[in-house]
Design a protein around this nucleic acid. Structure first.
Lengths: 308, 308
DNA sequence: GCGATGCGGTGCAAAAAATGCACCGCCCTC
DNA sequence: GAGGGCGGTGCATTTTTTGCACCGCATCGC
């Protein structure tokens, strides 16, 4: 859409912090960009940037305008999708911010299933921790968020919730693998690899450990759950992950066990959107499918998938 | 704002029903307009108009887009107002759709009071019946609506309500003027002038009359309450109006009396906006003032103003 | 202390986009 | 079947936008 080009430039300048850098990003000369910005500021009736010696920075007017622009752009895309939809094309785009646990099994399966019915719909999947996911929604960067234990900002609107107990991941020959029930203290007594503090799983572990006057002290701390799943094969430590991110590899090499609920209450896996926003048709429909699948998952498949 | 010019043209075409007429309205040639529309349709990915031999008409894609555009424009104006506000200018514009009863006394007084504090704020006052007022909100033509007995569409969000009994308006020498209490049947027994069916006052009268197996049969029916107030001076009939639209002229020539509540329950005067919409600062503040004034009015001044 | 560097901004000419004019084919009306 | 109104198009013109060269200014590094 051509009429929003000036806004694209404003956004680029805000991101780059400098008109010249932004001009390079947009493949135009600095002078052209400077004049567009200045002309728009004149028409708009207020400056959007503070001019600093080292460049420019959005002022509050600019922040307000940028937010308006993002809302406008997102709404226009929604309308465009709606129009394509009513002409029977079933086109559209879904952008979703999600926690890492969804990446290996759940989300690929869901996206593939959706695309089987609607091949014209494309997807963006953004891996975000729980705080970033909500920022993504607020800035219209993502339509949907599927996150474990979100921070719950005011603009987060919950579409569906399922409980997710934290599981222990370990090799089949780990001493704890034989236990029928795994207590939190057992986990903390043996060497463990854990995600860093910004993730929901770690947050729950830290909280529960403090309650028992213990501390989570991982031998390896990482931001990648993939790393966790693979590391336990190399050194015989235990890792942590929520059930939906785990599936039996089939060769019996890895074992998952939920941690006793009295020690560590299950966290929530939450599907949400930005409060009050009208989603594009494709995103709205995908959200419905996700909610249904989550419901099925919570109802039936937990045992099968978390068993050894 | 320049970047929305194409939308202005689309709106003009939709209104005119013909590209050539719209081009004249916009003071450009038909060819320029045709090409802008066609180019936009290409970029957008769908036609916005049905091409008929006699001209063009919006299709559903066009309707969707036009709604998006109106929302966008209104939001941009809101942002502009907010920015002006944070620079301390207190500029802005308030557009309000209201029933006729508010025109003679209440609204002028409120607007003047608001403008005394904020001289930079301008107003548009649109006289609308109760159905039109809600359409105005839905199409972003008005920020606020102050209407008697609205039809209550889904997108109408109530900000404040006060009850308004229907009053009888008559010359001081009318036989009913001497009564302490006026019954509905008394009104229907004597010649009367009444507003037409689309107004709330008439709606209440019709409903109550039917309940008593009577009919409202006015000697004059009009769309103007001004007409009603003045006509009763020339022929000795009774008229109807809600209290807020009446004030004693001071010379004792006219008399107002509420109709007995057991015959005709009081209607509601409602201040509202479009559901979920973020109002411009000026409109939001004016709405707060209106709500406060309505509350005061309902609490205290009714007796004084409706008395002879 | 003093160039060197990077910043936003400006004058001017070239390039690109939008517009106006004349005109086409079409359909309906009279 | 002629006339008028409709949307649409080729082409020259006008308007707008862009690129290039350059300015004044502040900062940083030596």
């Amino acid at each position: 859409m051509r009429h929003l080009q000036t806004f694209l430039m404003i956004e680029a300048v805000a991101r780059a912090g400098s008109m010249r850098k932004a001009a390079e990003d947009m493949n135009i000369t600095a002078s052209a960009l400077v004049r567009r910005i200045n002309r728009f500021e004149d028409e708009f009736g207020a400056e959007l940037f503070e001019r600093l010696p080292s460049g420019v920075r959005l002022n509050s007017a600019g922040e307000l305008l940028l937010h308006h622009y993002r809302a406008t752009r997102s709404d226009l895309l929604r309308v465009q999708g709606q129009v394509a939809d009513l002409s029977g094309e079933r086109r559209g785009h879904v952008s979703i911010a999600c926690s890492q646990a969804l990446l290996p099994y759940f989300l690929p399966q869901e996206i593939a299933r959706y695309r089987a019915d609607h091949p014209g719909v494309t997807f963006s999947v953004h891996v975000r921790d729980r705080a970033q996911a909500e920022q993504d929604l607020a800035s219209y960067s993502s339509d949907l968020a599927l996150v474990f234990e979100p921070v719950y900002l005011v603009d987060f609107e919950v579409l569906h919730v399922i409980p997710q107990p934290v599981h222990v991941v370990m090799r089949a020959d780990h001493p704890l693998a034989a236990r029928l029930e795994i207590r939190l203290r057992d986990c903390l007594d043996v060497p463990h690899i854990a995600p860093s503090a910004k993730f929901g799983v770690r947050h729950l572990l830290d909280f529960a450990a403090r309650r028992g006057s213990r501390r989570v002290s991982p031998v390896v701390e990482t931001e990648s759950f993939d790393m966790i799943r693979h590391y336990v094969r190399h050194e015989n430590v235990i890792g942590f992950q929520i059930g939906i991110g785990l599936r039996d590899p089939g060769d019996g090499s890895l074992v998952f066990r939920p941690i006793a609920e009295r020690d560590l209450p299950a966290g929530n896996l939450i599907l949400g959107q930005m409060r009050g926003r009208a989603l594009p048709v494709a995103s709205a429909r995908f959200a419905v499918q996700l909610a249904a699948s989550l419901k099925d998952y919570a109802a039936g498949d937990v045992v099968e998938r978390s068993g050894a």
